[in-house]
Design a protein around this nucleic acid. Structure first.
Lengths: 175, 175
DNA sequence: CTATTGTAGTTGATAGATCAACCGACGCTG
DNA sequence: CAGCGTCGGTTGATCTATCAACTACAATAG
């Protein structure tokens, strides 16, 4: 069959890169998630949200800001935050300047939780991802992957609850 | 706060690599999926399954083989295949040697569909992923990503419907 | 000031995937 | 060949995230 169709550079190395990309992602995220859930009862999504809040001014962000950063739809964020509110890690605060927006604010409990979970999570990333590379290789990877859409913010939004565009940010744990 | 905790190489380049990895994946897969659904009514998962079958001997594979390759649980595959059977792209065939296993076999209809969809999909991968790199860079990427768990099959299975280990394979379309 | 258009967030219905529990079939051991 | 652990696959309950529709408010135009 050969690889066929378009300009098709979809041969050996190209395919290796692509498949490695897809499969490693599935495997790593699955395991990070399992770790975090087992040790702290948090999903990676939860963790991300708490982290973004911890890094934000006043430890709070509008829902839509969270939506953009996490690559979830607005409705997805509403529900995720609902859960974290129920667990007491986040509280909702309505904005005085604009009655449409409501902030999610990290509670002290949420902040503690985040710090604990951070240990597990960072260790996991180190073990599953970073430890496979040298410092130089990590630089290469960062540069290469940084060109991809999503990492650079090239997303195309079309549908109703449009798919949010990704945004790079910093840090993987608080301290 | 600094990046903190473990052996923490979770600094600049390391974090860039990790975030680029996560965010680009989310963005790219989302868009590929949207493309494929819009043009052919198939999800990327569907496509993958059809492709694996097309590449297999006799165009058929046991459910568990599909489960491994796609990184879905056995129950996930059962349901996904159910759907493709309803659409007439796949048929189930029971194994004579071992009454426990049942094969999923690609029908002619499924094969045609796969070929059509392949054009869209390969073009998408080219556009969103491959076009960002030179041939040399793709080799580097393939090598680097190939070390990661999942790509190499290092998965750790624990729970009931255990998470399947990934397996590399070849090609992204049929012809 | 009112009407229109757009934005932030939530909600209902639904698809996709998981876990846990299960069934039937295999295969080994005693 | 009976008993026991294991394997392949399916099912029920549940969770997560989506889309589409809707509410409420804001901002702008007429």
């Amino acid at each position: 069959m050969a690889v066929s169709t378009p300009s098709s550079r979809l041969d050996g190395a190209a395919l290796g890169a692509w498949r490695g990309y897809l499969q490693s992602h599935a495997g790593i995220v699955r395991e990070l998630d399992a770790d975090l859930i087992a040790h702290h009862g948090l999903t990676v999504r939860d963790y991300e949200v708490l982290l973004y809040l911890a890094q934000a001014d006043e430890r709070q962000l509008p829902m839509s800001a969270l939506s953009e950063r996490t690559m979830l739809t607005r409705s997805g964020i509403t529900r995720l935050v609902d859960g974290l509110v129920d667990q007491g890690m986040i509280e909702r605060i309505s904005c005085e300047r604009d009655a449409r927006v409501s902030y999610a604010r990290l509670t002290d409990a949420g902040h503690s939780k985040l710090r604990e979970a951070g240990r597990t999570h960072v260790a996991g990333i180190e073990r599953l991802f970073l430890s496979n590379f040298t410092a130089t290789e990590l630089e290469q990877l960062a540069e290469l992957l940084g060109r991809l859409p999503g990492a650079t913010g090239v997303a195309q939004c079309t549908a109703g609850d449009e798919a949010p565009a990704a945004r790079p940010s910093s840090r993987c744990s608080v301290d």
